[in-house]
Write a protein that binds this DNA or RNA. Structure first.
Lengths: 153, 153
DNA sequence: GGCCTGGCTATGCTATCCGCAAGTCAGCGA
DNA sequence: TCGCTGACTTGCGGATAGCATAGCCAGGCC
């Protein structure tokens, strides 16, 4: 066993349904298009046509997904104006959106080392140039490994 | 801009396709059922009927997804025998599977604080009892925030 | 030899994801 | 006023995800 369960979780006999935060997250951003649009948002893209071009999705898919992400508060749609152009809208990450970065990073980390085609871009720490990873850490500052995890319900 | 891009990535004009490790990961475990089956595997479930009951998926969905996860090397299907019972198979996490824990944790972390129904189980560090989170850290040991990330292609 | 149980497999259905192609609509520039 | 361009919207169709129900099969028990 990898992870110790306590409380209700240890005794449960059926599905947890909406009490699982993983499931709740997946119901909001669980599609490939949502993740990849957010990836481009982190890369700095804000305009509709950039997001379409850089993700490779069709406009229809991008429009629908962007609307959902705005509705769920991960992106904000706000007007902007370039000189000599008419008013347009840009999509920018909200705090809620920014908070998903560790998840994207964790997925990227797995894919770089474990997916069939290995490799891909690497994240470095600006200045110190060391590679950046997501790690599990407790609020007391200890690095935590799987066996030391206790899940309380 | 949230994150600094360098090299090919900064200059690209189209989709990245198979060079994106996030996308490659999602093509393997991108479905809700895959994530939730892995969740139960981390919780310690190994038997087919337990995995079915605890995730709430149908047997057909679970069987199909488990087969994929085994094919991709995240789970290992191995025979076991309880006394007086016939030989059965259990599904246990491989190293590849275990390495996905930070991603699951990051998704859970987001869901606990940002999804509509807040709350859910909490992860603690065994012994010290402090809450466990995923954080971004560089190999030199620095805690890294979004603005300090550089992506090299 | 027949029943039961765990672990699947098969069939049929709906909903969602995605691509392709075409249409809409607002406003600037000519 | 006419066209163009960016930002969508609409319609169609295939693929995948998921549910429900039912059936199959191996092996231990009676």
């Amino acid at each position: 066993m990898a992870l110790r369960l306590t409380g209700r979780l240890a005794r449960r006999r059926g599905a947890v349904g909406d009490r699982c935060p993983i499931d709740r997250t997946l119901q909001i951003v669980g599609s490939r298009s949502a993740f990849l649009l957010l990836r481009e948002a982190f890369y700095g893209a804000t305009r509709f046509d950039d997001l379409v071009r850089l993700t490779g999705f069709t406009e229809a898919v991008a429009a629908k997904r962007l609307k959902e992400l705005v509705d769920h508060g991960l992106l904000e749609r706000r007007p902007y104006r370039q000189p000599g152009q008419r008013t347009r809208h840009e999509y920018v990450l909200t705090e809620r959106g920014h908070d998903l970065l560790p998840a994207l990073l964790a997925l990227a980390q797995w894919g770089r080392t474990h997916s069939p085609h290995k490799g891909g871009p690497t994240l470095l720490h600006d200045g110190c140039e060391a590679e950046v990873r997501v790690v599990m850490q407790c609020d007391a500052g200890h690095r935590v490994v799987e066996d030391e995890l206790v899940l309380t319900s």
